[in-house]
Design a protein around this nucleic acid. Sequence first.
DNA 1: CTGAAAGCGCTTACAG
DNA 2: CTGAAAGCGCTTACAG
Lengths: 340, 340
Amino acid sequence: MSTGKSVVDMQQLADLAQVSRSTVSRALADSPLVNAKTKQRIQALAAEHNYVLNEAARNFRLKKTRIVSVVLMIDPDSEQRTSDPFFLEMLGSIADSLVDAGYDMLLSHTAIQTAAEFRKTRAYRQSEGILFVGQGKVHDELNMLAAGERPIVVWGAEIDDSQYCVIGSDNRQGGFGATRHLIDCGRRSLAFFGDRRLPEPRLRFDGFLRAIDAGALNFDAANELAVPFEHQRAETMIQNYLDTNPAIDGIVCCSDVIALTAITQLNQRGLRVPDDISVTGYDNIGIASRLNPPLTTVDQHIRDAGRIMVERLLDLIEGRPASNHTLDTSLVERGSSRPS
Amino acid sequence: MSTGKSVVDMQQLADLAQVSRSTVSRALADSPLVNAKTKQRIQALAAEHNYVLNEAARNFRLKKTRIVSVVLMIDPDSEQRTSDPFFLEMLGSIADSLVDAGYDMLLSHTAIQTAAEFRKTRAYRQSEGILFVGQGKVHDELNMLAAGERPIVVWGAEIDDSQYCVIGSDNRQGGFGATRHLIDCGRRSLAFFGDRRLPEPRLRFDGFLRAIDAGALNFDAANELAVPFEHQRAETMIQNYLDTNPAIDGIVCCSDVIALTAITQLNQRGLRVPDDISVTGYDNIGIASRLNPPLTTVDQHIRDAGRIMVERLLDLIEGRPASNHTLDTSLVERGSSRPS
DNA sequence: CTGAAAGCGCTTACAG
DNA sequence: CTGAAAGCGCTTACAG
């Protein structure tokens, strides 16, 4: 049948149809300008000859790309780059939504340094908009970037002076819910594992403290541990902390991976979860339900999140306004929190 | 400073430098044709005016894209699309390697149906080459595709009549190693969890049987379970199987996710891993070491795999030959296999 | 060493 | 309803 090679270009189609390129172009775009019969004839001819429009040429001509860039804001210090399950699942969701919308995704995890530098990258120039997954420590640069001509949407925490569209889950609510749940489980001496220098953990810690207050408990600042999301350093830090034999009976963690690491370290010290210590995670990554014990965690509804980010960005690209959006979190109670 | 908008195009740069566009183009490409001083002057001017070459125009002119498409061959029946940790980690590795090589990645998980259809997609037309992660059940279509003008590299199992470049790990070795390890651990009644209708599990099963033979053991065909990679169906199938109270003391699984599911189901039936039953996984996904118990598994060296796939594809794109490559697997012994 | 010219494959304002 | 023409921003064979 076909050679696979697109032998046909628009000019050749025009020759075959005995019309001009203009008419072919219009016919294929289903323009009302062109006569119905002519249109049909051309479309039939195109199908017959297996014509495929050269999108690169079209996009070049129209100065469009139909490409959205996705930037994973991964801590540049960490070695493994794109391997955090949360990022990867978010990526999957974004990819699915973009495909559904007929956009392609350009993936990049160049750690963004400055807005000016980023504007020179292909991720910026070749795309119609950019999705940032995470704010990292470059909130100000994102603000500058948002002032440019290319729309951006950011996954993260609402920060007071945000000039950009932020989508995020309700981190305060998430932190509060996990903490209150542990208190409901009878826990009284809680620890918080997460780095409050980052926007989202900061809000979760806020919620944590509120729940502590609401429960009329005390919180010993020594039990706040600035655990990073990156696994290797997280593990070391948790080990060192547990070696001090802290008097705790519950841990609120800022990611499922942190919770998992904590549980493993606790087990290695002969402490059982949840009977000796309760642990909650954050994110509800795909395998959270299949861990041993299954993880009680705060669901960030990652798939919804990706979809909403894409929707908002397409709104901006097409000139519609886009407001921030905060997704509700839900606490998913599984086996790691309530002692038997 | 800069407005962020690229005010300058090549013509304007030419006007500023009082030379022709031709010369500017050559100067920026560092062509030896152009006078060294002129070149410097133009390059300085370009920097000063924050000129950035319009890559879309350049690529269009050169009929190149600097884009590589990645197609995840995900079972179209499954609901969650891009969420398998193995796929996602492979994706991360590929993305990293492509970025290093100055290529962008176009992600797509349109389940490929036929080569002819695929040739019409953007993933095909807009890219300089395609990476398929997995062969799915479309080996023949991949063969047809490989006959076309666009280079492809496929992650999977070497199949006799492969016309395409295949990168994969040594599945027979992997299956053999995991099985022999369980036998070394004193296990005598083994089960195999994986769908032999797929190329890779088929080879792993091969290795499994060889190890059984080498150990002079018997294998009851009832203990081969065609567990799919998709989690939901996998879980159901494993539940049904375990409900029959099979007389087994070890399970060789075709993925870490399958192993994890098996362990959880075993635990729910009061069976302890590894004391009652030993379990091995496959892939060595990032969190395999942090599961409870930590998973004994076959490392497929995913990061090397992604890097090698990219290398081979770039070879093909640049006209160099590319041979198949089989990565050695390594058995990583952790807590899920050897009874105490 | 440099420039004028052609052309990559399309779309669309303009004229008819 | 249709076509001739211009042009998107580059690169390079050709001529000088």
